[in-house]
């Protein structure tokens, strides 16, 4: 149980962080590109980025919290 819990924690954190990194990178890069091209569209793009980042970030937070629970469970 101990070793498997550590592996589960590592997979949950690693894959969650990978997905969030790619997703956030794409969202922020496209938004910054759009704002640099059209500064007057900042409000619209900012709100779209806000919703997009919120959608992307939910999963890695669940992953990290689950990993921490696995880690705490493996130690006890």
């Amino acid at each position: 149980m101990g070793v498997m819990a550590y592996i589960a924690a590592a997979i949950a954190v690693g894959l969650g962080a990978l997905g969030a990194g790619i997703g956030n990178g794409l969202i922020v890069s496209k938004t910054v590109e759009g704002i640099a091209r059209q500064p007057e569209a900042r409000a619209t793009l900012q709100t779209t980025m806000y919703i997009g980042v919120a959608l992307v970030e939910a999963l890695p937070i669940i992953g990290v919290v689950l990993a921490f629970i696995f880690y705490a469970g493996a130690g006890s």
Binding site: V28, T31, V32, I35, A36, R42, L45, Q46, M49, Y50, V53
Partner: peptide, 8 residues
């Protein structure tokens, strides 16, 4: 996010 938009 507001800071990023202001920087951009």
């Amino acid at each position: 996010i507001m800071n990023i938009a202001k920087s951009a």
